[in-house]
C-alpha cells in the first residue's frame, strides 16, 4: 500500500480536470491546453439554432443531409508520464517509517525503519497515477537515476495501475542522477504531447536542469516538478560533530554541523529557489514536498493552485 487512506480521501475531492482542459477521446471531460497542436481528434455535433454556420461541415450534410458543426476545439485524453528519481540521494530519510506509512507496520519490507525520500516519491507517483487512472486518462511511468531504469507504457487500463505499483517496488540505486539523459531517453519514447511529473530531490546542477527542461518545452510537453526533500535537509538540525557521508559517492567529511548550518541552509535554499525559478521560467509548475508532511494536503494545495492558474489564463 503506497497511498495513505487519508491521502486518497483528500485527493478524491479534487478532479484532475481542474488542471487540464483536455477533451480526450476517451473521457471527453478535459479541455486541452494544447489548443492548435492537437489535430488527431475532431468531433461533430448536431447544429442547433444560433450556431455559427461557418463551422458547418458541408461534407457531412452532403452525405447525410443533416447539419453538423465541425468542432475546432478538439478534446483529447491526458497522458501523464510520472518520472521517479531512483538515484542514491533519494535513499535518505530521517522520518520514522511507522509514523510516515500510516499503518502499524514499523519497518519497510526490506527492514528499514526510516521513511526515505524515495518512499515519499513513490507515494506521490502512485497518487498521481491513481487519480489519473481513476479519471480514465493514460498514465505511464519512468524510474531513473543516471539513466532510465524502467518504463511503463501509457495506458488507461486497470492493469496499468498494477504495472506501475510493481515498477515502483524497487530500491534506489547507488548512482548519481543524470536527469538530462533520463529525459532524453523518456522523450524518445513519447510521441504525443503529455504531462510529465518529475519527482526528484533535484540535486542536479542548474545547467543540467535547464537543458532538461528546455528539451521538454521544446517537445511541447508540460512539466510538473515535485522536489522531494527530507525535513533534515531543510533544517539541518544536527548537533554533534560527526563524519558526514553522502549517498552518491561524495567524500566523507568530518564537520561540526552547528558551525556550518547557516552556510548550508543558505546554499540549499538558494538551490531550491533557483530550481523553482527555473521551472517557472519555462512555464512549468513546481512543488516542494517535505517528507515529514502529509502528502495529501500538499497535493491538494498544489492542484488547487494549478486550477486557479489555469482559470486565470483562460479568462485572460
Amino acid at each position: 500500500m503506497y497511498l495513505h487512506p487519508r491521502t486518497l480521501a483528500r485527493l478524491g475531492s479534487f478532479e484532475l480536470r481542474a488542471k487540464q482542459i483536455v477533451e480526450g477521446v476517451m473521457s471527453g471531460q478535459h479541455r486541452s491546453p494544447y489548443k492548435g497542436f492537437s489535430v488527431d481528434f475532431a468531433q461533430h455535433r448536431p447544429y442547433v439554432s444560433g450556431d455559427d454556420i461557418r463551422h458547418l461541415d458541408w461534407k457531412v450534410y452532403a452525405r447525410s443531409d443533416k447539419l453538423h458543426l465541425k468542432q475546432y476545439q478538439q478534446e483529447t485524453n491526458v497522458d501523464l508520464i510520472v518520472m521517479v528519481d531512483c538515484s542514491g540521494s533519494m535513499n535518505f530519510g530521517s522520518r520514522l517509517f511507522a509514523e510516515a506509512s500510516g499503518s502499524a507496520q514499523k519497518t519497510s519490507i526490506d527492514g528499514r525503519d526510516n521513511w526515505t525520500k524515495f518512499d515519499h516519491a513513490t507515494a506521490v507517483a502512485a497518487a498521481l497515477s491513481y487519480i489519473t487512472l481513476s479519471q480514465g486518462d493514460r498514465v505511464g511511468m519512468v524510474t531513473f537515476a543516471d539513466e532510465t531504469l524502467s518504463f511503463v507504457g501509457r495506458s488507461s487500463s486497470r492493469g496499468t495501475w498494477r504495472q506501475i505499483v510493481r515498477a515502483l517496488a524497487v530500491h534506489p540505486v547507488d548512482k548519481p542522477t543524470d536527469l538530462r539523459r533520463a529525459i532524453d531517453q523518456t522523450l524518445a519514447k513519447v510521441t504525443n504531447r503529455c504531462i510529465i511529473a518529475l519527482i526528484s530531490d533535484m540535486f542536479e546542477d542548474l545547467d543540467t536542469l535547464r537543458q532538461a527542461m528546455a528539451r521538454i518545452r521544446h517537445r511541447g510537453h508540460d512539466l510538473v516538478v515535485f522536489q522531494v526533500l527530507d525535513q533534515s535537509e531543510l533544517t539541518f538540525d544536527f548537533a554533534d560533530p560527526a563524519p558526514f557521508q553522502g549517498l552518491e559517492g561524495e567524500p566523507m567529511l568530518r564537520i561540526d554541523p552547528r558551525a556550518i548550518k547557516q552556510s548550508y541552509l543558505d546554499a540549499i535554499n538558494a538551490h531550491n529557489k533557483a530550481v523553482q525559478k527555473l521551472a517557472r521560467s519555462f512555464g512549468f509548475d513546481y512543488q516542494l514536498v517535505n517528507t515529514h508532511e502529509w502528502l495529501g494536503p500538499t497535493l491538494a494545495s498544489f492542484i488547487a493552485h494549478r486550477n486557479a492558474m489555469i482559470k486565470r489564463s483562460k479568462l485572460s
Binding site: 540535486f203 557521508q245 561524495e250 556550518i260 552556510s263
Partner: peptide
C-alpha cells in the same frame, strides 16, 4: 571514529564547509 551520518544533500554540506573551513 564516530558513527558516520549518512546525508543526502552532501553537495551543499561540502559547499558550506568549504566556505567556513578557514574560519572553523
Amino acid at each position: 571514529k564516530r558513527r558516520p551520518v549518512v546525508f543526502a544533500a552532501m553537495r551543499f554540506v561540502i559547499e558550506a564547509y568549504n566556505k567556513q573551513r578557514k574560519r572553523l
